[in-house]
């Protein structure tokens, strides 16, 4: 094989073979099955199924709320990572550990607790009730649930990069006359950009697929707070397997396209940063 390079570690063929097999069994075959299943349906019927107005409303909610949650976490996560890396304070390790909680928690547990707290008679919900603002069982609730479960992604991708950021870079910039704002904008932020994009992409992708934590707080009202994963479940409950896989394909394609765009952005920013030393 022309691309096989000499290596001190043996087993290249075995490792490559295993990787391909693993990837096929775990990822490619189920995805192919998805297309295979929905291919039983004629194209116009497929189109009709996936453009059902109720479904379109759910796309808007799922992708819109996911995007909003990821953007919120882009800023919130950066802030959290910044505080965790830059400032010593009591209970820092505890807070650091807490960041992973939304990830480790069973999503149903997160969903129930969020629904309880944000319900009109819940701890937080009743604070907003006098102004007639409902959080649970609305789109706001969906965004909150998604923000909650995707919290760790930006924090955990930015944190190590921020830790490795040489203090000297900031000192050099300051000695050249840059203000604190300029140091942040021109020196720190560009260095963090690839990590921020990665965290954003991961959070976004996770939010699109999130089910357990959302359904409780969303209330699942058609055209208002139904998320797309729920539509798949409801199709399945009606034994409409082909319909369910059609929706799945739409989600798959959109997610894939988004990841492609974000990877492209990352590649571009990495190229701008030059090869890392």
């Amino acid at each position: 094989m022309a691309f096989k390079q000499h290596s001190v570690l043996p087993g290249f063929n075995l490792a490559l073979g295993y990787t391909l097999l693993y990837l096929s069994v775990i990822v490619l075959i189920p995805l192919a099955a998805l297309f295979f299943k929905s291919a039983q349906m004629p194209l116009d019927a497929f189109w009709h199924t996936v453009t059902d107005p109720r479904l379109v409303a759910s796309y808007k909610l799922t992708f819109g709320a996911s995007l909003l949650a990821a953007v919120i976490n882009l800023f919130g996560g950066l802030l959290l990572a910044w505080v965790l890396v830059r400032y010593p304070f009591p209970g820092k390790r505890f807070i650091d550990a807490m960041v992973d909680l939304p990830f480790a928690l069973p999503t149903a547990v997160a969903g129930i607790s969020l629904a309880t707290i944000y319900a009109p008679n819940g701890w937080v919900g009743q604070l907003f009730a006098p102004w007639d603002i409902k959080i649970a069982f609305t789109r706001i609730g969906v965004v909150i649930a998604l923000t909650f479960v995707t919290l760790p992604f930006v924090v955990r991708t930015v944190q190590p990069v921020l830790e490795d950021l040489e203090k000297e870079l900031e000192e050099a910039a300051a000695s050249l006359g840059a203000t604190r704002g300029q140091v942040f904008r021109k020196v720190i932020l560009p260095t963090l950009l690839p990590a921020l994009l990665t965290g954003f992409a991961l959070a976004f992708a996770r939010a699109i697929g999130e089910y357990g934590s959302v359904i409780f707080i969303a209330g699942n009202m058609p055209f208002v707070s139904e998320i797309t994963p729920l539509m798949i479940i409801s199709k399945l409950e009606q034994y409409d397997y082909v319909g369910a896989t059609s929706i799945a394909i739409v989600m798959l394609l959109v997610s894939f396209a988004l990841l492609l765009v974000i990877n492209g952005l990352q590649w571009w920013s990495a190229k701008r940063l030059g090869r890392r030393k």
């Binding site: 040489e166 870079l169 000192e171 300051a174 000695s175 021109k186 560009p190 030393k277």
Partner: peptide, 17 residues
């Protein structure tokens, strides 16, 4: 920032981006 000194670091501290 206001001292108007040029500082050169051992590990260069160039802006990579």
């Amino acid at each position: 920032r206001e001292r108007n000194v040029g500082f050169v670091f051992q590990h260069y501290a160039l802006f990579r981006h």
